[in-house]
Each structure stands twice: as C-alpha cells, then as structure tokens.
Design a protein around this nucleic acid. Structure first.
Length: 882
RNA sequence: GCCGAUGUGGUGAAAUGGUAAACACAGCGGACUUAAAAUCCGCUGCCCGAAAGGGCUUACCGGUUCGAGUCCGGUCAUCGGCACCA
C-alpha cells in the first residue's frame, strides 16, 4: 500500500502524537518506595522482558511478540490497581558488537550507542508502557560498576557446609591459609582444559559450545589447557535443581535445566592397581553390578596413565593419547559410534572377588565427568558392551532381566545373579547393600554426581567488563570497592592478538597497576550483565548500592517491611506452592512474570538463578529465586513456514509493518496469530485482518466526509446500550479480563471482534458503552483507544476518560447483564444431536426433559422404544438413551 | 538412542468431558459504484441428495463414559532439546 493511498484510519497521525504525550507527561513512570507519589497500599507487579542485545539489524518481529504480551499484562495490572514495574534495557556487551567493530574499525561503543538509539526509536514507535527512567545498559559504567561489585562478592565468598555462600572472612578467621582459601572461592582461577575458539580468539563456556562449534559464528572449538577464571556454580547444583519446584515455569524448561545439571546417584569405588601403590577411584551408578566388572577404563588424560603403563604398551598408549588430544570435541563426538582404546598393560583388583581385571584407556571415558575412570560392566552397559565385543573382553552376567529380555546388554533393573552376597536382590536393594558393604570396608562411598561443570567466566575480549583483579607476585587479589567501576582502557586497536593473550594486553599503561602489580587482562562474558539486570531495574539510578534495600524488597516480595525468607529453599517445596500463590510472600521468585525465548533455558536462566542465590545467601536480596513465573514465547516463522533469515529472504521488518498498518495493528496481529507460546508463521494477510478490525472500531466513533475529513460520528449518542449490546460488552469485559490473566490474547482479541461486530450492526452507537469498550481495548491497541477516547471527550466530556485510559480502572462486568431469558438446549438420542429448542432459563430439569421428549424428531429417533436413561444438563442438553 | 512438545477445514486457529470448527485469512455470491478499490450483507469441513434430510469427520488403533478433539493405553508423523555423563 503506498502512502498516497488513503489509510483506513489516520494512525500515522495519532500514534506518534500519543507517544509524545505519554512521554512528555511521564504517563508510565513508576514511583519507588520513598517517592512522594508512591502508594504503599497497592500490590506490586513486576513484569519483565528478556532485554535485547541491540544488534545492528534492529528489531526483529520476534521482539515485539514478547514485549506486547508483557505490555498488555502490565497495562492491565495497572488498571487493576497494581504498582506495575515494566522496564526495558540493553544487554549491550558481547561478541557481535566486537566482531563488527573488528570488521569495520569502528569502536564498539560507537556502534553500540547507535544500535541502542535505533532500538529505542523502534520500541518507542510501538507504544510500550515502559518506565524509561529505569532504562539500564550493561555497558554503562554506572551499571557495570555493580557487575564488577557482584563479581567481588563471588570472589570473596565460599560455600559452607550448610550449602550457602558465606564471606571469605569467615575462613580467614578460622586461620586457613591463603592457598586453602583460594581453593574455596566462588570465583577462582583454574588451569584446566577449556574450550578455545581460534577464530573468535576466545574461550567459551560449555553452554556456548554446540556440537563442538561455537554457538556464535559456528567456528570449531578445541580443548586446550589455559589459566581461566571459573565460577563455582557446581556448589549450587543441588539447590538449582531443588528450588525449581516452587517456580511457575513450564515443566519442559524445568526438565531442561534438571537434565543440564544432570544429577545422578551412585557410588565411588576404589580399585587397587595390581603391583602398584596407587588406587583407581571410579564413579558408578550401578555399584550393584560390581561383580560383573571385567575390565576398567581410564580417560586418556587420566594422571595415572603415565604411572601404570607397561613397557610393552607404552608406544601404543602414547600414540593413542596423542591421537585423542588432537581430536576436537566435534570429532570425538562424531566418531562416537565406533569404540576405540588401548590396553595399558596394568591390572586392577576387583574388590568384591579379588579378580585381576585389565586396565584400558579409551576416549569414551571423559576426564571431565565423575573421576575420569570407570569400572566396565559389559553385560549391563551399552558402551562397555560394544567395547568388550570389539576388543574381545569377557562379558559376565550379574543381573537377571525379566522374562523375554536378553541379559546381554540389559541395562534396566532386574535381580542380582553371580554376585555372591547380592544374589537374589532386586537392583535397588543390591545397590543399597553393596554401598553399605563398600562403606564398611572403606572401599567406597555413596555419592551424587552432576554433569554440570563450573562456569568458565573469562573471555579474551575487549568489549566486556574488566575483572576488578590485580596480580602481584603470581597471586591475585581484588581491587577495593572504592576503585569501581574499573573502566576498560581506551584502545584504538581492540583486535584479538591471535594468541590466547587477551587484547587488553595491548594497553600497556593500563595493565601496569603499580610498580609491582598488573591488572587481570581477561574480561567477563556477556552473561555477566544479564545475570542481575532485573534487580537494577528496581532502582536503576542508585549510585550507592547495586539496588536500594527497600526498592529491592518491595519489587521482589511486595513487602514494604522485612523479608520473609529465613531458610533458603525451604519455602520452595511443592507443598507450599499452592499457599505461596495465595500468599505472595512465600513465593520463592521475585519477578512476577518473565517472558522470553526458549534459547535461554539453560544459559541465562541458570546463570541468573545462581548469582541470585549467592546474593540471597549473603543477604543482599530477599528471595531465593529471581523469576517466579516464566513464559516462553514461540518463534515467529516467515510466511513460508521457515525460520526467518536474510538468506531465505523471508524476514519481516517491524518498521515496515508500523509504517503501513500502524503500531496497534502490529501489536494486535502478533497477539492474534495464535497462542503466545506456540511457533507460528507470519502472514501479511493476517495483519490486514486485524487492521480492518481496528478500522471498524475507528468507524464506530468516527465518520468521514466527501473530502476525506474525519469527524465524530453522528450515530454516536449519549444513550444507554440496549440489552443485546450490553450483553456483548459485558461478555467482552469478562472474557478479556480472564484471557489476559491466562495470557490467552488471541481469544481475547476474537471476543473484542465479536463485540465490535455487534456494535457495528447497531444504528445508534451508545458512547458510554464504547468508552468502556475502549478501556478493554486499550492494553492491546493503546494509541487507537486513546485517540477515540479523546475524540469522544470532545463532545461527551462526562463519558470519556479524563486524562489517559491507562489511568482508568479496568471496568467491572455485571453478571446480570450476561444472563439471557432463554437458552438453546440441544436434544440428543443415544448421544447424537437430533433437535434443539429454546427454553426459559429457569426451566427445571423435569420441564426440559418433557420438552425434549415431546420433540417430534426425538420421538422419531427413539423409534417408539422406552427411554432407558435420560441425562439432563440444564442450560445445555438432554440426552435420551434407548 | 533418550527426553519434551505438537498433530482439528484450503490457511492461522477456537472449544470447564456436553451443538466440533468461534474469531480471522483465503475463496464464492450480493449491495453501493460508470468502473475499480474501500465498505456493508450473505455463503463456505467432506460425501450422498433437486430439496427436506441423512451419513462421515479432530493423525491412526483400541478403551473408559449416556456422551471423548478433550480422560486412559498403544502406534505413527513433525518439530525442539540432549546425546559415549559411567
């Protein structure tokens, strides 16, 4: 549609006008506790979007999907008397900005600023009710000062026996040595094999490596040992699993996190190495199969390999180790099907039967999980089974499967056989008994293992938060808080060095902290800033603290007074959940609703929960969990049903849609497409459909003359709505209110369409009822609703909202208006629909039954047989069974 | 391989165990118009039938129920996640 063509309603005039008025009057400013206009009697509602990375491509149609959903909820809650916190900000550190900067030579701060300006303009053109005074930007020194501050909290904390974070000073008081303390810090330095990506010139977290390639860019990743900063997230593994229980998250996302953390129960078992002093410790989830262990496998990198390898096997072992080391992770997983390995020449003693069993090395045993060594039970483990077949190692049955299963490769529960004192026990019983036996003999111990590894937290980048750490005499120490924020150096050349040496090394002056101390050269990963931004929104301009005490308490718990949490996690148990919803103080999460994509299920959402728990343990926040309710919006596909991408040419630009159909149409369409959580394809025809709907609403109030000038419709009058319109209106108030709570926006919109169609058919338009309708419409299409309200106010000042519709109260529906005198009841014979009739609403069951039996069509299908049974559902149906 | 989600008209979809397909899109017909666009009104799951009407229909098979898109068991397909985790 060209711009010359007349628009169905002048959205391009009134949308910017209202955006300007809302901004000028700070219509969506949200006062904090302590502000003069703060109303402590109102409940709070914190509705959060996953803040965007301001990329150079600008807004994608996927962004407004979640943002419109939260905007509708926020506006609705405000009209229902809540103090609503609905903020927006920028996750602006990160690889793409730096990659772009390297390519173009423009400083990342410059491109980031330009991108933020563009995103801001785009978001403002959509009329979201954000409190822009609370805007945060992770690259702002006033923000990353506190990211660095939280890092110092991690650096200066350890996890005690109670499973909670404590200040490191407690260990100092106990007289622990410097080395012992460094060993316990939540942020620590480790020299370990890490994921190094040569093309990106940085290391990556496990979570950022997909199929052996970098998540950003898809470049190969290799493992190499490097000195890196790690965060001890594994200390929180159990709590990160347990405390999911109290959260209103999709079960699938909870499961994804549980699987990622990967808890498994089993035992550590010690195996003596024959003719050596050393022992091999293995982790197994099946200690009950110990009698079936016929060989052992060490990871090729295992430190005992050097010690135990025999002369004859030395060459073969060395060759195999080198070959494995050269393999990238990708190759190691791709070749997973074919087992490989080499005998070390050494033997271990099986502690239960003193049998000598060979020790092999093989790359199917991973150094990073468990102890990097396994006892192989080929009869009852698929991988061991394959390996044993290939290398002709003995396979010994120790579990009797149920009827009809082959014991070879049987991995489920059964009955222990050939297992001495375990014989006849079921698998769970045998596990218990052997674990007790091992513990008694000092040969092993029941243990829990997690797949989750500690979080690799340093990157060799320029565009990230510098660590507030200096090195002196080979030791690290933290900067005092007074030196925060630690600004990055102003580098002209921020390109990677081509070696693992970070680019900050080029800032030689900056690096030299003092005559004897140098700064840490790594920077933090992009996730750092997004781990706590929701807290900053509560008090975004606070320069004294990362978030004010009262602001945090109010927005996270709703309480203006003390915190209710004394024992972390205890309130998060399933039993308290129902109560917790009643009594919001008992809910573990602070943010009432968090909407964003699934792609953050295990990255951002896990990291943020971890930081939040540390801050909670240390007493800096009031809730054990950050996000109470999480909703994932579904991906929007291109018109061709494929994922939108430049190469496919199916990308829809929200700016184009706003230009041609207006912001309200874009908002409404994205909500009308289907359920929020569903994946759904874009359709421009669909946009036109909601655009037509908005035009119909417009024409309820406005009419056009021959010159194309719009004026208030003469059909609009100050008269009460008739019974039929009143019913349509009140049904709409009811259904939209309920649907918004359920996030069922598509059905709310269809109800508004039904209502509008009813009003369109009426000759006289009752102005008061239309204003009520506009209130219901306003969270969805705020510009149109505001404009029509203002138009109506010009002639019927008593009927319209005085200032903005968002200041109005959500209308109440009258249940009496919904009731009709007569209802249609359907008559079934043997469950098949045969007739219908309108009956008075107060008709008794007996009366309805009589009407049904009197129906000629019912009688015809009863074929003269007597009714065996008659089911009457008042107001609905009668089913006659013959 | 394991885990999860989803299967309803030509399309997006709707349906507290109670009239399947609301609301839209597309299509068809009509009104207005010199004409078109826009707007307004009507029709539109499939099969048989001139019609009245009848039969069938929520991926497939079976079960529970007076009654199943909805609940239970099984099968298949698509999408997403994880994947040598001992």
């Amino acid at each position: 549609m060209s711009s010359e063509q007349r628009k169905a309603f002048p959205f391009s005039e009134f949308e910017p006008k209202w955006q300007g008025e809302w901004e000028a009057s700070k219509a969506y400013r949200t006062p904090n506790p302590g502000d003069a206009d703060f109303d402590a009697s109102k409940p709070k509602y914190f509705v959060l979007d996953m803040f965007p990375y301001p990329s150079g491509n600008g807004l994608h149609v996927g962004h407004p999907e979640g943002y419109t959903a939260t905007d509708i909820i926020g506006r609705f809650k405000k009209m229902n008397g809540f103090n609503v916190l609905h903020p927006m900000g920028w996750d602006a550190f990160g690889l793409p900005a730096e990659q772009y900067a390297i390519k173009t030579g423009t400083h990342p701060r410059v491109t980031t600023e330009a991108n933020v300006a563009n995103f801001t303009k785009q978001l403002k053109s959509l009329g979201f009710a954000y409190d822009w005074d609370r805007e945060v930007n992770t690259t702002d020194p006033g923000y990353f000062k506190w990211t660095q501050w939280i890092f110092l909290k991690l650096y200066n904390s350890y996890v005690g026996d109670d499973g909670k974070a404590h200040p490191i000073s407690e260990l100092e008081a106990q007289g622990l040595s410097r080395e012992e303390i460094d060993h316990r810090r939540l942020a620590y330095v480790s020299e370990a094999p890490v994921n190094w990506c040569p093309q990106l010139g940085t290391v990556l977290a496990n979570e950022e490596v997909v199929d052996g390639k970098s998540e950003v860019g898809g470049f190969p990743v290799e493992r190499r040992p490097m000195r890196q900063w790690m965060l001890r997230i594994t200390s929180y593994a159990q709590r990160l699993i347990d405390e999911l229980d109290g959260l209103d998250w999709p079960e699938s996302i909870k499961l994804l996190q549980r699987n990622w953390i990967g808890r498994s129960e089993g035992a550590h078992v010690q195996f003596q190495i024959s003719n050596f002093k050393s022992q091999i410790q293995v982790f197994t989830t099946r200690p009950d199969t110990l009698f079936g262990a016929t060989y052992m496998v060490l990871a090729p990198e295992h430190r005992l390999v050097d010690e135990i390898t025999s002369e004859e096997q030395l060459a073969a072992v060395e060759e195999y180790r080198e070959k494995t080391a050269r393999k990238s992770d990708l190759e190691r997983t791709e070749l997973a099907k074919e087992k490989s390995g080499v005998f070390t020449g050494a033997y271990a003693i099986n502690p239960v039967n003193n049998e000598r069993i060979p020790i092999w090395i093989a790359d199917y045993v991973l150094m990073g999980y468990g102890t990097g060594a396994i006892m192989a039970v080929p009869a009852h483990d698929e991988r061991d089974f394959e390996f044993a077949k290939k290398f002709e190692l003995p396979i010994k049955q120790v579990v009797q499967p149920p009827e009809g299963h082959d014991w070879q490769g049987f991995t489920d529960n059964g009955i222990a056989v050939n297992s001495g004192f375990l014989d006849g026990l079921s698998t769970p019983e045998a596990k218990k008994k052997i674990t007790a036996w091992l513990e008694e003999k000092g040969l092993g111990k029941g243990t829990t293992n997690f797949k989750l590894r500690d979080w690799l937290f340093s990157r060799q980048r320029y565009w990230g938060e510098p660590f507030p750490i200096v090195w002196e005499n080979g030791q690290h120490r933290s900067l005092p808080e007074s030196e925060l924020p630690l600004m990055p150096p102003t580098l002209e050349d921020f390109k990677p060095t081509g070696t693992p040496e970070p680019p900050l090394s080029k800032a030689t002056d900056w690096v030299q902290y003092s005559a004897t101390a140098k700064r840490e050269l790594n920077t933090m990963p992009q996730w750092a800033g997004s781990c706590w931004y929701y807290l900053r929104y509560c008090d975004a301009r606070n320069s004294e603290r990362f978030v004010g005490v009262e602001a945090e308490r109010y927005w996270m718990t709703g309480s203006v007074h003390g915190s209710q949490f004394s024992v972390p996690g205890s309130s998060a148990s399933g039993n308290n959940r129902e109560q917790g919803i009643e009594n919001r103080e008992l809910r573990p999460g602070g943010v009432d609703l968090y909407v964003g994509g699934t792609e953050h299920a295990v990255l951002h959402l896990l990291y943020a929960r971890f930081w939040h728990k540390v801050l909670f343990d240390l007493g800096y926040v009031s809730t054990p969990e950050p996000f109470q309710r999480l909703v994932n919006q579904g991906l929007i596909l291109g018109e061709d049903g494929q994922k939108m991408s430049k190469s496919r040419g199916n990308v829809v630009n929200p700016d184009d849609v706003v230009r041609e159909y207006g912001a309200d149409a874009l908002r409404l369409y994205e909500m009308f497409m289907g359920p929020l959580e569903q994946v759904k394809p874009w359709s421009m025809k669909g946009v036109e459909g909601v655009y037509r709907f908005l035009a119909r609403v417009w024409r309820l109030v406005m009419e056009v003359d021959d010159e194309g000038v719009w004026s208030l419709s003469k059909a609009l009058q100050d008269v009460p709505a008739n019974k039929q319109l009143t019913k349509a209106l009140h049904e709409t108030i009811k259904k939209c209110g309920e649907d918004i709570e359920k996030l069922s926006f598509n059905t709310a919109i269809s109800q508004m369409m039904v209502c509008t169609n009813a009003f369109t058919g009426a000759e006289v338009k009752p102005a008061g009822a239309i204003v009520t309708f506009l209130k219901v419409l306003s969270p969805f299409a705020p510009h149109l609703a505001e404009e029509l309200n203002a138009q109506i106010r010009s002639q019927f000042p008593a009927l319209a909202a005085k200032r903005f519709l968002s200041d109005e109260t959500w209308p109440a529906y009258d249940p009496a208006a919904l009731i009709e005198d007569e209802v249609e009841v359907v008559f079934q014979v043997n469950g098949k629909l045969r007739d219908k009739a309108r009956v008075p609403i107060q008709a008794t069951k007996e009366e309805i039954e009589q009407i049904a039996l009197a129906s000629a069509r019912v009688q015809e299908f009863m074929e003269g047989k007597p009714a065996k049974k008659i089911i009457v559902v008042p107001g609905k149906l009668v089913n006659v069974v013959v």
